[in-house]
Design a binder for these strands. Sequence first.
DNA 1: GAGTGGTCTAGACCACTCC
DNA 2: GAGTGGTCTAGACCACTCC
Lengths: 254, 254
Amino acid sequence: MSTGSFTIDKSSVIPLYYQLAKIFKDQITSGTLQPNQSLPPEYEIAKIYGISRPTVRQAIAELTKDGFVYTLKGKGTFVSVPQLDDISFELDDFRKEIKQRGMKLSSKLIRVEIIKSDAMLEKKIGIPLDTDCLFLKVVHFADDEPLVFEEKYFIYTKNKPILESELEGYSLSNLVSSQSSLFPAMSEKVLKVSAVNQEEAKLLNVELNSPVFLVEQIVFDIDERPIGWGKSIFRGDRYKLTNFSGWHKKDKKL
Amino acid sequence: MSTGSFTIDKSSVIPLYYQLAKIFKDQITSGTLQPNQSLPPEYEIAKIYGISRPTVRQAIAELTKDGFVYTLKGKGTFVSVPQLDDISFELDDFRKEIKQRGMKLSSKLIRVEIIKSDAMLEKKIGIPLDTDCLFLKVVHFADDEPLVFEEKYFIYTKNKPILESELEGYSLSNLVSSQSSLFPAMSEKVLKVSAVNQEEAKLLNVELNSPVFLVEQIVFDIDERPIGWGKSIFRGDRYKLTNFSGWHKKDKKL
DNA sequence: GAGTGGTCTAGACCACTCC
DNA sequence: GAGTGGTCTAGACCACTCC
């Protein structure tokens, strides 16, 4: 079973380094090159395919980035063993996701107020006492079905009028950008499981104690000072996080 | 507040491209260079710092990889806007994690048998009917507290004797490697939330209906044929997944 | 047509590994 | 000391963007 040509076409519009990387990828995924086996030295690869060493290095950089090979200084370049046992999950912004599925996205502001940060906010997040903050509760719907419930606190430094429509649909870091003069530079998110309380059950239209995803987010400015905090609850019966690892689907996102 | 030198030291042991990348990183994180602002053209950067264009390009490749800048062909190189609203969670192999925390890891094999794959396995995973499979149930403990409950099915092609100790502690892809002649090349994992049933509650020593993380994994061979399936239940009161994104902690793992 | 990043060459010297 | 990848130079030509 041949998965591709083993020669380089110098007249092709496809870059030489890309053609070379493809050749090695094919040899690795077809088993011709086994894990931990070494590739020929760079100067040799250059000689074999009639190209320069920098071009060979560019191909190897590509293969390294995609996790197919690793290099050891002074020793050589070797085929990687695929990493399958780490879990790395990704969840795009749920607003994007709902729209991508062609569903109607809507949001409802349950509550909004300007508060002074209290001892809880100071202790839990590190926002200094008596700082002006906005506090929001929002429910997000897809095709009129409630899917996500969010509570957010963030430092509020602008004195411009607040538009409800601006508060409903924005993510925490967008809210901080638009409603304060602070610049969100870093974010920490923690994913937990939880069982819904009475308020959450009612807002999300699920039974009391239903299992849900709980994401707690803290947004920091460039000096690592916390400037916002959010809690999002995703219905467990409607959400899952999927992860692919290994060789095949790697270029999915490239 | 100066976060570093703005000149390159050619006599330093630190590579020139790395020094140059550091200069731009400092300017970006300090706000001297704002998001979407352009860097000088490559030939100009080369002239300014007295280095060659390939070295400048190596620095820019580094900055691109770390998410600080992006390039547009024919237009230039620009400072990125930090991406904060994607969720990407990572959970290392839980065995590694428990050991890293200095806790005692142990595993208990609840059940093991050789079965022929049935209609459920064929439908759910795609393993052909009547294929020899191993079926396992294992509970993993940290300091004698049950934390994870796993059920696994995978194709069994070797006829060598099975050692219980080999089955207890291995991850699904390691099990497939060691107990069959198949080569796991890709893995799909889905993370869900769930509430424990009676059996799971008893084994994990939690109350009935407690919320838990549920990870379903399918392992594929190089031709994308499924060769193993696993379900892992992580106690919700003991597990969380943490994620950092943005500019600062980026080099954490490099 | 001027400006930009993308690709490629043919060299050079270095630090590291392994004997 | 031989072999290897890491860094760096000084050029060349190209496709693309924008006018």
